[in-house]
Design a protein around this nucleic acid. Sequence first.
RNA 1: GCCCCCGUAGCUCAGGGGAUAGAGCACCGCCCUCCGGAGGCGGUGGCGUAGGUUCGAAUCCUACCGGGGGCACCA
Length: 547
Amino acid sequence: MTPALLADLVRAAASDVLARRGLDAAALPQDMGVERPRNPEHGDYATNIALRAAKKAGVAPRELATWLADELATRDGIASAEIAGPGFINLRLAADAQGGIVADILATGAAFGNGDEYAGRNVNLEFVSANPTGPLHLGGTRWAATGDALGRVLSARGAKVTREYYFNDTGGQITRFVRSLVAAAEGEPVPEDGYGGDYIAEIAAQVLAVEPGALTSPERDEIFRRVGVGLMFDEIKADLHAFGTDFDVWFHEQSLHDSGAVEAAVERLKASNNLYFADGAWWLRSSEFGDDKDRPVIKSDGQPAYIAGDIAYFLDKRARGFDLCIYMLGADHHGYTGRLKAAAAALGDDPAVVEVLIGQLVNLVADGKPVRMSKRAGNVVTMEDLVDAVGVDAARYSLIRSSVDSPLDVDLDLLTRRSNDNPVFYVQYAHARLASLARNAADLGLTPGREFGLLVHPREGDLIRTLGEFPAVVASAAELREPHRVARYLETLASAYHKFYDACRVLPMGDEAVTELHRARLALCVAARQVLANGLAMLGVSAPERM
RNA sequence: GCCCCCGUAGCUCAGGGGAUAGAGCACCGCCCUCCGGAGGCGGUGGCGUAGGUUCGAAUCCUACCGGGGGCACCA
């Protein structure tokens, strides 16, 4: 019996009990269910339904709990139901009913953990979107890992997800990038406000290799812009691909200007009287839609402001049929939330379609002290540096496993020197152990059994119940946009497996006869391996056969 | 001044109102006659402060303290 089925059973039983007593079954709160108590003495599962429903039902919590426990004890699959504390009901399942989870996993395979709450939702997930003026650094790498994992999690729960990267390939930062390239090509120092990393000289050299006459051409800046930015695109795309993060759409801001989409968006806002002219500029009445202040959309020099592109981009996303537009941004862009939602509202759209996830910044740490990354000082840590140091799996995992709400400290020396400390290896090791076990079982001709009622060891029960949690973990990771929950769950699962392995012999020893217990345990192992593999896949981390 | 995020074990971090707050690393002590010791078992050690809501608060609310990031006709 899965936790979800058990929760349904508890709710149904509670509803029956209330109805039988002439009480309103509508008193049952929706947001309650069963959970696994910390203390194993409190049962396999516990429910607080009596506590939650007592007040509305007009009954003392323990009295309601008593009625409900009596009712639950009569239901199939429930071995015992006991009242505890202020009105908890502690449940124990019959071993064969609980083992049904294993059968479920074996039948569902790679789809175990999937769900359909987001079926029909068409989600645009925009992340990374770093400016094409340099290689991806640690910040972008964090979004590359967590954004990709979020996309996988949402897909697993039924959403149609389009991963999108927005290249800001126009505007002031591109102008400075081009000036820097030209200066490097001419052997001049880094211009004021320019970019100074070693990669600038390398790209400048590559531009000259492609276009030998670039420096003397009247189209010099245009050539450096076109070729140089193109090379930057290629490098970013290649880095992301090597990192295991692939995008469905690479969107170029410039295309919105070229197609007239920006102009059309501005005209539309003017026509609906959501722009006004003041001080030589056109302003969006964003403060009327919840933003802190009004924002210039057309600057007084007649050029569109950055937000003009954003507005056109949002309209483009909506025109492509997305009903949820998620933006993953760094903490230094948190001010965008208000204006993006205000822009959506000004366009007559529902601001809830815009969802901005703000992630805290990544800091570089050395010897326990923060290091300020500076391209000039040459201590910028790139995605490539991190992957070179620890590998893709460890890099992705360490970036995903904490909440994006918390700032992340990366100590590259520590990671390099002691990469085995990364919990990813703990999880992967569990999978490799299971793969090894499967090979040995195959050699012995042992096949998985189905007599799950034999799995009565406490470590077996823990492992089965932990496996049963996976779908709910994925569902909450999707709902809360917190893929780190999957990583933390996998650590719990790996731990439950290692404990089981330590206490419960799976394969027959020596010339010992094969029993149904051996075969049932093997089935449990197959299920555990499946869930570990499913979870790791959701993080974009490999599930190795051997390590 | 205003806005966002954070403050949990020596360190890095989990804990979306539940019972005795967890993991990894670090430190101390144990466990290999056979399935992978990259493992298991035990120990040391913690919710920034003060109020409030609740049967129940690390979790929700308020104030304060401390840290990070924002508050452009830059992107």
